[in-house]
Design a protein around this nucleic acid. Structure first.
Length: 432
RNA sequence: GUCCCCAUCGUCUAGCCUGGCCUAGGACAAGAGCUUUUCAAGCUCUCGACACCGGUUCAAAUCCGGUUGGGGACGCCA
């Protein structure tokens, strides 16, 4: 039975690197019909916070990873103590007294060669003479990371330890502990790290790294998962966009690369756009409504969902993030728009009173107010006035949307409706 | 400083294990064009890499050694 675990410490948010480790563990469990275990490493009582724990579990859930079992190290202190005392009795550990009189339990590291087999990297050899004796139980009675980790992985019957590259140097220390405690050594797989754009670890300075931040920025979990997955694994056949169910069939931990990858937001944006394009507008609406309410674009008791759905369809293909929707589509929800100053100067600087009022009149006369008929009436007007269509299209767009870019003008007019279109046009007509 | 890991376009990668099919394939980004009503999307094209040196071999991106470069770890943090 394959049993893997993700072991975050609730001393910070779930970040990109942690999410990727969780993904590969979860995916491997699904691919091999095993179990995925969540272990909360909250031995540091001072730095562990409930809010971080909540953020981590919420983010994992949002990404779609569910766990079969959950454990908290803070509830297992007696087990660690017991195992440390066993080593003490056998003579492989000793007690060290501090000047204050407190006692710590230290593991004796004997000089020897330690071989670690890694599913991704092959065999790695370490010389134990370069490793110091290891603290097992700190003088405050709590276990150290390496010790609790070994006791837990062994007692939880973890078959494969899949974790970040940064743990490679912990591995020989842990192997020694497995052997001293008489536990079977699990398989190891060390995942390459994800680096920031300037090289080095992904940090707050390199941009947002918390998964909850990506959620707030309007990324879809499927897109983020797909991107993370492709960061050090490839399904082959030049495939990039891959549904998770398909990935489960193809994934194997041995196929993961050894090389550290640089996080690239541009590519993430592309993935997000790919998923946004084919997403169910209904689902996007569900995500968008709370944000639109919060920012005052919608009123709680007055939501026209069918209308919102149409507007979403209009923008879906041009969004990189869900949040882009608000900046592109705001004019559909605002009572009054303020045109971008540059756009106004460029397209509404000259007097178009005659053209705008004529067009407003023509729109009044359109019988079946639909997109083709709006276009026909516009084209006829252009012909009569003898001007180029773009001479009028761009100014009208700015008058209606406040922007120089957006969906096709006739769609905009249709969804804005006769009334609002007229109002916004006439605002630029000088009364003589 | 010591130990460990890694090395294909700017970025993510395919190929490497099982040398020849590689004048190295795809994607993102960038640039150009088509379309056009602007921005996206879509389509077409362009730019662009086997870090270096040596060895093995008829043949090396692929195997071996070294150099260089990058990253990580050396806590009574996890």
């Amino acid at each position: 039975m394959i049993r893997v675990r993700f072991a975050p410490s609730p001393t910070g948010n779930l970040h990109i690197g942690g999410a990727r480790t969780a993904l590969f563990n979860w995916l491997y469990a699904l691919a091999k019909n095993g179990k995925f275990i969540l272990r909360i490493e909250d031995t540091d009582q001072l730095r562990s916070k409930k809010e971080f724990l909540d953020e981590i579990t919420n983010s994992l859930g949002w990404l779609g990873f569910s766990w079969d079992e959950i454990y908290y190290q803070s509830q297992r202190f007696s087990l660690y103590k017991e195992q440390a005392e066993k080593l003490l009795k056998e003579g492989s550990a000793y007690i060290e007294k501090s000047p204050q009189g407190t006692e710590a339990i230290i593991f004796k590291v004997k000089p020897q060669k330690i071989k670690v087999r890694d599913l991704i990297r092959g065999e790695i050899e370490f010389d134990a003479s370069t490793i110091k004796d290891q603290v097992l139980i700190k003088s405050d009675g709590t276990p150290t990371y390496n010790f609790a980790c070994v006791v837990d992985d062994a007692t939880m019957s973890i078959s494969h330890v899949i974790r970040g590259d940064d743990h490679i140097s912990n591995t020989p220390k842990q192997v020694l502990l497995y052997e001293a405690l008489g536990f079977k050594v699990p398989e190891f797989a060390h995942l390459p790290l994800i680096l920031g754009a300037e090289g080095g670890r992904l940090s707050k300075r390199t941009g947002a790294t918390a998964i909850s931040d990506y959620r707030k920025m309007g990324y879809l979990p499927q897109a983020l998962v797909n991107y993370l997955l492709l960061l050090s694994w490839a399904p082959g056949e030049n495939r990039e966009v891959i549904e998770i169910n398909e990935a489960i069939k193809l994934f194997d931990i041995q196929d993961v690369n050894k090389t550290a990858a640089t996080f690239d937001q541009d590519k993430l944006n592309w993935f997000n756009n790919q998923y946004l394009k084919k997403a169910d507008p209904q689902k996007l609406a569900d995500e968008l409504i709370p944000i639109l309410l919060e920012q005052g674009y919608l009123e709680k008791d007055n939501i026209d969902k069918a209308y919102l759905l149409e507007i979403i369809k209009l923008f879906q293909a041009r969004l990189n993030t869900l949040n882009d929707f608000i900046s592109w589509a705001d004019f559909f929800f605002l009572k009054e728009i303020t045109p971008d100053p540059q756009a106004q100067a460029k397209f509404l600087g000259t007097d178009l009173s005659k053209e705008f009022s004529l067009f407003a009149e023509r729109l009044e006369e359109v019988k079946d107010f639909d997109i083709p008929n709006i276009e026909i009436s516009f084209r006829e007007l252009i012909k009569e006035l003898g001007i180029e269509s773009k001479k009028l299209i761009h100014p009208i767009r700015v008058a209606l949307t406040g922007k120089t870019i957006g969906p096709g003008l006739f769609e905009v007019i249709y969804y804005l409706g006769k009334e609002r279109t007229r109002e916004r046009l006439l605002k630029w007509v000088k009364k003589s």
